[in-house]
């Protein structure tokens, strides 16, 4: 486990760079993590994905599968891959401040 200071706030991360406590998250932290992932500035569409992931995580304890994500967040598969190029499930989960996705789909 490692810690990093973002915006004067100490954030805990696991060895793979996922936040271990999603309650430490804020939109400023999301912006900093998005910068690290090479995503750039986050738009409303990014947040449609991030908010859905966080909601799902809060309710179920794990992030959604890509299938659920695209069906229920209102962001279709094509757009999801454009918003988070190079591996949407993990990148979006990392920026959303939740644990690494566990499913295969």
């Amino acid at each position: 486990m490692t810690t990093k200071t973002i915006n004067d706030q100490t954030i805990d991360f696991d060895d793979e760079g996922f936040m271990t406590d999603y309650t430490q998250w804020s939109t400023e932290i999301a912006a900093a993590l998005a910068e690290e992932e090479g995503i750039g500035t986050l738009t409303d569409r990014h947040f449609a994905v991030i908010d859905f992931m966080r909601k799902e995580f809060e309710e179920k304890g794990s992030g959604p599968s890509i299938r659920r994500l695209t069906k229920e967040s209102g962001v279709p598969t094509k757009e999801l891959y454009q918003l988070f190029p190079g591996g949407p499930a993990k990148k979006a989960a990392r920026i959303a401040g939740i644990k690494k996705p566990q499913g295969c789909i």
């Binding site: 891959y81 591996g87 949407p88 993990k90």
Partner: peptide
């Protein structure tokens, strides 16, 4: 199919 989709998920 699962392996192909999983590959895309990982970029």
């Amino acid at each position: 199919l699962i392996m192909a989709n999983g590959a895309r998920m990982e970029g």
